[in-house]
Computed example of a mutant assay.
Amino acid sequence: METKQKGPLGRPRGFDADEALERAMLVFWEHGYEGASTAALTNAMGISTTSMYAAFGNKEKLFRKVLERYTEGPSAYLARALEEPTALAVATAILAGTVRTTTRPANPHGCLGVQGALSTSDSGQEVRDLLVDWRHSGYSCVRERFQRAVDEGDLPTGSDPGLLARYVTTFGYGIAVQAASGVGRDELQEMADAALHNWPPLFP
Rank of each mutant, 00 (worst) to 15 (best):
L112C: 07
F15M: 08
A55H: 04
L67D: 02
W199I: 01
W134G: 04
D122R: 08
S75C: 11
P161L: 03
K65D: 10
T102F: 02
R100E: 13
L88E: 03
A195M: 11
S37Y: 10
G7R: 11
P201V: 05
V127A: 03
G184R: 13
V99I: 07
E68D: 15
V127S: 02
L202K: 12
F28P: 01
A36I: 05
T103S: 08
I175F: 03
N107C: 13
T101K: 01
A24V: 08
E190K: 15
L67Y: 04
V177G: 01
E34M: 08
A87G: 05
T120P: 03
G124E: 01
G46I: 08
T170E: 11
E126V: 06
A24T: 07
L202P: 03
E83I: 06
V90D: 00
E22Q: 15
T169E: 03
G32F: 00
M25S: 09
L130Y: 07
Q115M: 13
D160R: 06
F63N: 02
A149R: 00
L155R: 01
D160T: 06
E30M: 14
L130K: 03
T92K: 05
V99M: 02
E190N: 13
L155W: 02
A17T: 12
P12M: 05
G7Q: 13
L196F: 08
V27Q: 04
D16L: 12
Q5C: 10
V168D: 00
L26A: 12
P156K: 05
G57D: 05
S37I: 11
Y70A: 04
P204T: 06
T103V: 07
G57T: 07
I175W: 00
A87E: 00
R185S: 11
A24Q: 03
G158P: 04
Y70L: 04
Q5P: 06
D186T: 15
E72Y: 11
